[in-house]
Amino acid sequence: MTIAIREPRDSDFFPWLSLYEAYTAARGAALTEQKALLLWTWLSDPAHVESALIAVDDEGEVLGLAHFHTFPRPLEGDSGTFVDALYVGAEVRDETVGTRLFDAIRDYATGHGAGVLRWTKGHDEQLPAALTNAGAEASSPEVHELQLTAQRVAQPA
C-alpha cells in the first residue's frame, strides 16, 4: 500500500470528519457540528493560520490527519509549529502512517523557519512512536518539543 501525504480537498470532508470525531472522542472532547464546520472552514482557507495534512492510500481513502499552526517566538527570532492534532484511524494504526504525517509536519516546520515543533498529550495518553522516536523531550508532563535547525530570519537593520 502506498501512502500519500497531502492537503485535504473539499471531497475529503466526510472521511476527515469521521477521523476527527474519533480523535475528539479519544481526547474526551465533545465535537459539535458547529465546531467541525468552523475547523473545516479554517483548514480550507489558505490565509488562516491553522493548516492540515491527511494521509491517503492508493484508493484515496483518508487514513490519518494532522492539524498544526505556526506561532511567533520573538525571543528566539523565529517561529514554532504547534501540532494540534495527529490521528490515525484504528483500522490502519501502525508506525508508517503516523510517522509519515509527523515527518511531513516536521518538513513543513523546518521549511518555514520554525525553531521548534511542539505538541501535547493527554495525561494518561501514550505518545505514538512517531513522536517518541523523533528525539523530542518533555518540557512539561503534557508538552513535548523537538528542537529544529531552522534558518533564522534576518532582522531589519
Rank of each mutant, 00 (worst) to 15 (best):
T2A: 11
E145M: 06
E145C: 02
W40L: 08
P128D: 00
H144Y: 12
A25H: 09
L38R: 14
R6V: 07
H112K: 09
Q151V: 11
T81C: 15
T32F: 05
V116Y: 03
V97A: 13
T81F: 01
F13K: 13
D124M: 06
T24L: 13
L39V: 13
Q147H: 07
D10A: 15
A36Y: 03
A129I: 06
A25N: 09
A104K: 05
H48C: 05
S11C: 12
E21N: 11
T2F: 10
S18E: 12
E61T: 14
L148D: 00
S11G: 11
V116M: 06
F14K: 12
F82D: 05
G122Y: 00
P141E: 06
Y20A: 07
L38N: 14
R73A: 13
T70M: 13
P15E: 10
A4Y: 09
S18F: 09
D103P: 03
W119A: 02
G64R: 00
D12V: 07
L31Q: 01
S79P: 01
G115I: 00
A30P: 01
P72S: 08
V153I: 10
A114Y: 02
A150E: 01
G115E: 03
K35G: 10
E33S: 13
A136W: 10
G113L: 08
M1N: 04
V49R: 14
S18N: 11
G89V: 09
P72I: 07
T81P: 02
L127T: 01
E76V: 11
L117W: 02
A52S: 14
H123V: 14
T70V: 14
I105G: 02
I5L: 10
T96M: 11
L101W: 03
P128A: 04
R118P: 03
A26F: 14
Y87I: 08
E95N: 13
S139D: 10
L38H: 11
A154C: 04
L43Q: 04
S79T: 12
A90I: 11
G111T: 06
V153T: 13
L101T: 01
Y108M: 04
H48Y: 14
T110F: 04
W40H: 09
V62E: 02
F14L: 15
K121D: 00
E142C: 06
E59S: 14
D84P: 03
R106P: 00
T149R: 14
A36V: 03
V153A: 13
E91Y: 09
A90E: 15
